Each structure stands twice: as structure tokens, then as C-alpha cells.
Simulated assay, not measured.
Amino acid sequence: MTEQQRAEEGPGPEPGETGRPEVTEETVEALVRSQLAKALGGKRGMVEAAVPTLTFTVSYIIASDLRLSIVLGVVAAVLLGVLRLVQRSSVQYVVTSLFGIGIAAVFAMRSGNAADAFLPGIIYNAVYAVVLGLSVLVRWPAIGLMIGPFIGHREDFTSWRENPAVVSLASKLTWLLVLPCVIRVAVQYPLWAAATYGEADTFAALGLSKVAMGWPLQVAAFAAMVWVLARGRTPLAERPADRD
């Protein structure tokens, strides 16, 4: 199309006049996507979360020494942390992993049952699923609480609840966070019970399921959330300061 033809046709429609508006920094979807990207931590964060658990599981399968396996798992997390410090990057995900394996060690050492190292994770996921599910049922979805300070009035972070579209979007996204937790409990609890009560030797399957259902399952949930966000165009409420 030539410049003359463009001039004759006049200016095109403004964004939002035809169809749905583009997702920009002024939409709820774009804001939530940016928050999820920060929470994910990238491929390296996923590896750092999996390595200590994988080290613990494999070493116990090989040596059947609970204390040694715990030590090796902790050492793996510490080495990852030292590498982060040397590179002057964030140790957030390493610290989280180290904290997790520390709690697992307490459970396993107290009972002497290696499978109990996975019990804290099962309990955590069960509680997490219940809390998130209740937050949706009472119309205070957890995702809404996360983005609340960035939406609506600065002096009232609960103002996002005045927009039914935002509450509906936050509820859908929160359910997508609940789903991985429910799947983990549904798969891992029977494996833990079988190993604990001597019904079957499911320790290896339990350890591998924890790794496979860790970040990979979380990434799948985040991918589903991104898909939901890509389909929506919920504008951010105008703030008082923006109208000045």
C-alpha cells in the first residue's frame, strides 16, 4: 500500500476499537505473566531444585545408608550454592532446596525410614492445595492477593476484588496452581505408604516421582497459566495517581 493510499483511507482503528486490545503492561494478564516468570527461576532453578533430591535417592538406592544419603544430598545443595556465590548470582533457589532437604532429613532420621524423607513434601502439597482451594472458594484467590498491590488503588490493595473479571481470572489461575499439588499427593502418598508399611519396595519410584513431579509439573502448570493469560485481555484499573 502506498503512502497516498494510506492517506486517502485515513488513520486505522485505535487499539481496542476492533477486536480485543493487545496485551501490554496495562493488562492484568501481562502483569501476572511477569510475576510468574520471576517465580519460575528458569532452567537453572529447576535443576538446582532437583539435584539434591536426585542425589539422595540414587545414593540410598546404591548404598542403603540413610545418613550417607542425606549428607550427600546436603553436600550437593551446598556445592550448588557455592557455585552461585562464586558467580555472584542469586542463591534463592539453592537455599530453598537446602531448606527442603534439611526438613526431609529431620523426618527420615527421626523415624529411621528413608521414605519419610518425602513425607514433608507430601504434607506440604496437601496443605498447599487445601489453602489455595479455600482461597478460591471464599472469593479471595491467592493469585489475586499476589497481584493485588499492583492493581487498582494504591492505598487499597483489595480493590481488585471490585472487578469480577479480575476475580474470575485470578480464580482460574489459582486452580491451575492447585492441580499439580493434588497430582503429587495422589501419586506420591500411595508410594510412601507402600514403602513405609512394607507392602512394596517403592522407594526408587517415590524418589523419581518427586523429581519428575517437581519443576516439570510446575512448568506444565505455568504453561497452562500462560495459555489462559494469552487468551485474556483484562485491563488494569486506573489508579488515582494516573488520573492526575
Rank of each mutant, 00 (worst) to 15 (best):
M1A: 13
M1K: 13
Q4H: 12
Q5L: 14
P11W: 05
P13N: 15
P13V: 15
E14A: 14
P15Q: 11
P15M: 11
T18G: 10
R20M: 13
R20Y: 10
T24E: 08
V28D: 02
L31V: 06
K38S: 15
K43F: 12
K43N: 13
E48V: 08
A49L: 13
P52W: 00
P52Q: 05
T55P: 02
T55W: 00
F56G: 02
T57V: 13
T57H: 02
V58N: 04
S59G: 07
I61W: 09
A63Y: 11
S64R: 14
S64N: 15
D65V: 13
L66S: 01
G73T: 03
V75F: 11
V75T: 13
A76Q: 03
A77L: 06
A77M: 06
L79D: 03
L80E: 03
G81Y: 03
V82C: 07
R84T: 13
R84C: 09
V86L: 11
R88S: 10
Q92N: 14
Q92M: 12
Y93L: 09
V95Y: 06
S97E: 07
F99W: 11
G102E: 07
I103V: 15
A108T: 04
A108N: 02
R110L: 14
N113D: 15
N113F: 09
D116C: 06
A117N: 07
A117H: 03
P120L: 05
I122G: 00
I123W: 02
N125F: 07
V127N: 07
A129S: 10
V130G: 08
L134K: 07
V136N: 01
W140N: 12
W140T: 10
I143M: 09
G144A: 03
L145T: 07
L145K: 09
M146A: 08
M146G: 01
P149F: 08
G152P: 01
G152M: 04
R154V: 14
F157A: 12
S159L: 05
S159Y: 06
W160E: 01
R161N: 09
E162K: 12
A165C: 05
A165G: 04
V166F: 07
V167W: 02
L169C: 02
A170T: 10
S171F: 05
K172I: 12
L176P: 00
L179V: 10
I183E: 04
V185R: 00
A186V: 14
L191Y: 04
W192E: 01
A194I: 03
A194M: 11
A195P: 01
T196Y: 09
Y197D: 11
A200Q: 05
F203R: 03
L208C: 09
L208K: 04
V211R: 03
Q218D: 14
V219D: 07
V219F: 14
A220K: 02
A220M: 12
A221F: 00
A223G: 07
A223V: 10
W227R: 13
W227V: 09
R231A: 15
G232V: 06
G232I: 01
G232W: 03
P235R: 05
A237G: 13
R239T: 08
R239P: 00
A241F: 15
